[in-house]
Structure formats: structure tokens, C-alpha cells
Write a protein that binds this DNA or RNA. Sequence first.
DNA 1: TGGATGTTATACAGGCAGTACAACAAACAA
DNA 2: TTGTTTGTTGTACTGCCTGTATAACATCCA
Lengths: 299, 299
Amino acid sequence: MNDRKQHVIKMAHQLFTDKGFQNTSIQDILDYSGISKGTFYNYFSSKNELLITLIKTIYKQLEQDRNELLIGQDPSDIDVFIKQIELHLNTNRANKLISLFEEVLILNDADLKQFIKQGQMRILHWLFLRFIDIFGENKRPCLLDCAIMFMGILHQNLKYQAIVPESNASINQIVRYSVERIMKMVEEVSQSGDQLIPPELLDHWLPDSKNPGPAFQQQLYHTVLTLKKQIKNNNEESKYLDLLDFVQEELLNSKEPRKFLVESALLSLKGCEPSFEQEILQNLERLVAVFFSQIEETS
Amino acid sequence: MNDRKQHVIKMAHQLFTDKGFQNTSIQDILDYSGISKGTFYNYFSSKNELLITLIKTIYKQLEQDRNELLIGQDPSDIDVFIKQIELHLNTNRANKLISLFEEVLILNDADLKQFIKQGQMRILHWLFLRFIDIFGENKRPCLLDCAIMFMGILHQNLKYQAIVPESNASINQIVRYSVERIMKMVEEVSQSGDQLIPPELLDHWLPDSKNPGPAFQQQLYHTVLTLKKQIKNNNEESKYLDLLDFVQEELLNSKEPRKFLVESALLSLKGCEPSFEQEILQNLERLVAVFFSQIEETS
DNA sequence: TGGATGTTATACAGGCAGTACAACAAACAA
DNA sequence: TTGTTTGTTGTACTGCCTGTATAACATCCA
């Protein structure tokens, strides 16, 4: 990435943590980082896209650091787990990521929402896998529930601890307290046999990068179908049908999907706007974007 | 409140739940409710103020309904508690309050933030008092922590349940599951003796409780509850229970509370002095006095 | 009948996001 | 060297938003 672009991201990050995302105007970013409007829109299509790249860089680093803590250690060692959680929390706090996340979830930007939700899903997935390390494969059925509840317990404890006037508890204490609770809870839940969400559902939520998950397949299939129905009356019917088929085929069954071809196809489809409902076409675009972002992450 | 103003609030509420708070412009509200800009700014100083009054009306109703569920019931009955929680969640869902809340917490409006945070504190406080009802005074030291964690568990379970494709779990199941967990957890935590936040801090967070309103309601209801427990062994038990219920009902839900009746009831209660802890009864008297002094002030 | 109060319509100032475009700068190839 | 490409700048513009101001109109009540 460009040095200059990097610099803009850094300055924007500072502004976001100082004044909040919403409360930072693009003009602020321009002034603060000393670039012109034209350049900004050359780098990013919007403030949201800037935020996405910002969060991506932070989290890529975090996941790497977090996994390094595990190298050469016993994965069932609870102290290692606690260290990893603390790393998470400290990163979050240092970058004020939580408030940024919350802020973003409000915005009516589908892309951004999708992106954040996937990030949370990845954390949940990681937590689930670590719980299996720690508590054992035989407790698997209840461990997704427990991972979900652990996030709730931890966040809530942190939130109210922050309000306490003279906060006498360190992050370490809160994490240890929360971990203590979840350890007992895992025992209790696994004995009771209760289950809210079977862990298999994780695969639906978190499409395997190279092998798109069934949920993704279904969504794509459904979207394409809806679009196909809408072009019934068009005179260039077959052309658009072929384009849609191509996109679907390339995403689902090609080993190395060619991004440029798919995007070109989308562009052509857009050219026939009146035939399509705007919303559905945007859905397709979103799906394609999600698909390729996952490809690029893993490579 | 003005009928017209009420109507504006109603229309705005609909727009907010449909399109989100941020995404609804004042112009939208003007068009949708058919008033002019001048009138709007005559009613409210800003969109934020409108939101505050909106949330206030909803929550006033909710707290009343929620407390009514308890009248004449055993306060330690877990099923009553579950019903109250469900009422909360259903109201939240029906009004899309949660997203509104989250949305608001972002905005850089200090008033609004304060208002919402106090609302959350009130819920937490209520939860804490209910936990004392349910689990007993002797577990008090850990019950604020448990109330906090219960909120985390419940919200997180709901959040991820909502993502499940074919949500086969009802709200009732989720609440029951969460309550089951917290019950076991209370036992565990109270035995371990761990504590994160001492319950005394609640008083620091909450605004002064002298002024009536929701805080007053909670105090009243809790005082009455404590008294009820103390008369368990009395031979004229039912009579005193009825008296207490009457006082609570008259203060909270009557449009024109009859002072003479309430005071007569207090006198009768005093007649059975040995059964009551002096201090608690005086609390009740003080609350009643405060209540009527406020009534007389405003009339 | 006349004043108080509430309401409307409209114009206006100031701020924001995003687009468009002409002019400039630096790198690079022939 | 010259011409081209590519990135950058500054500025102007559209369109949407909030919040203020005000003249004209409506309604109620004494």
C-alpha cells in the first residue's frame, strides 16, 4: 500500500478515536492529513471504505499476535488463553475499536455491517475452537453456547467496571473472574445437556473461505434467480441470462474465480438498469464483494 | 400532553423503527405527520429531544406493566421473573428499542447519552433487587455482579439466536436457558466468595432517589416486598398483605390516590408493630410522605 | 371585537458528501 | 529533448441536511 495512503489512514484513525467516526467529517481528514479531496476519493470510495481498511489492518495484526502466543504452548493451558483475551482487550482499548464497532453497526451501510459482523463471527469461531482445546472435544455440543455467553459476560463486566469511580480492578482481574465463571458454567451446562445453538451452525455463518458455505451458496442462488425473473421481458434476455449464469458458475465452481470478469459482468448487468430492481442487484454486488474479500484474506 | 404532539411522536416512532433514527430526517417527520417546521420546533428543540420523550413514554408504560406482574405474586417465584423479562424483551422488540438505544449511544449528545445510561442503570438496579427477592438477602454481595452478567448472557444469546437461519428457539426458551444458567452461577459465585463490584456502588450510579418517578417506584415496591416477607409468621397475615398491596397499588396506579386511605392503612400496619422491623416501616412512611408532598406541589 | 396563542409556508444561512474538471507536477519512455 | 501517463490539487457545483426567522393565517376566549 502507498505510503501516502497509509499516512491518511493513520491520521484518520487518530481523528476517529478522538472524536468518533460519525463526528469526523471528510473535510477534517483532508485538513488533518494534508491531502486534497480529489486524492481522498482516489484512495477510498467513501469514509466507510477507509474504516474497513483501517480495521482490517489492525485485526490482521491482532490475529497474528494472538496466535503467536500459542506457539509452543499447551493449548489447554488456561493462562495462555487468558493472555490471549487480554491481548484482545488491550488492542481494542488502545484503538478504541469497540466504540468504532458499535458506531458502525448503526450506520445503514450494508457492506460495513456485513464486514463487522463477519469479524465478530471470526472471533466467536476462534473462541469456540479454543474452548474445545481447553475443555475437550467431548463437551463440544455446549461449547458454542458457552463461547457466546462468555463474550456477553466479559463485555458486560468490562462495561460496568469502567463506570466504577475508582476502578480498583485491573483488566486481568476481570478476565480471570469471567474465565472462572465460564469454566464452572461449562461444567454445569455440559452436565445438564441443554443446548441453544448447535455448533454445526457456525459453518453456515462463517462460509469457509475457499469452499463457500451452504448459506452463501443459497443466498447467491436465490439472488440470481430473482434477477433472472426480472429480465423476462427484456429483448436482450439471453445475454443477461448468460451473464448471471456465468457469475454464479464462476463463484461456486471455479477454483480460481476471475475477479475482473465477474466485476465486468456486474457492470454490464448494471447497464440494463431499468430491468432490475436496484436492491437485488446491490445484493448481488455485496455477495460478490464478500466472496472476493474472503479469497484475498486467506491468500 | 397535546394530542397533536402525541401524534407527531407516534409518527416519528414509526419512521424511526422503519428507517432508523439517524436515517430519518426532520423533513421526513414533517411530511409524514403533516405538520410544519415551525410547529415541530415549537414542540421539540431538536430531533434528540423528541427521541427522549418517545423513549420516556414507552419505558414508563413498561415499568408499570412489569411491576404489575408482581402484584399479589410470590416475589421469589422464578416464573414471575421470567414473565417480567419476557415482557421487557417483547417491548424492546416491538419498539425496536435496542437498536434505537445503540444508535443513540453513538451520538455526541451528552444529554441523550446520560438519559440512556440512566435508563440502563435503572434496569440493572431493578434486576439487582429482583435477584435479592429470588436468591435471598444473604447472597447480596455477589448479586450485582450476577445481575450484570445475566444481562450479558441474555443479550448475547438473543443476538446470536436471531442470526440462526431457522430460529427454532422461542424467546421463552432463550430466557429460560439464560435464567437456568444464572441460577447455577449465583450458587457458584456466592460459594466462591469472589466479587467484582460491591452493590453499594449502585447508589453512587443512581440519581438521588428522593424524587418520585421510576426510582421511586422501585424503592416503594422493594420496601413493600421486604415488609411482606416479615409478616409471613403473623396470624393475621392476609390482612396485612392486602393492606400493603393496596398501598402500593394506590400510589403507583391510581390516578387520584386517596391520601386518607393510604394513611389509614399505614396506621393499621403500625398497629402490628412487633412483626415489622421499625426501620423498614418508617421507610414506607417516608416514601408515602414524599409521594403526597409531590402531588400537592404540582396540583 | 380584539388580542393571545398556535400554525403554516417559505426563505435563508451554514454544513456536509460526493462529483466534475481544468490545471499542475513528476515520472517515464522514445 | 519531447510527449504521454499518472497522480495530485484547488475549486466550483449539486443536492441534502439542520436550525432560524418571519409574515400571514387560524382559532379560541374574554
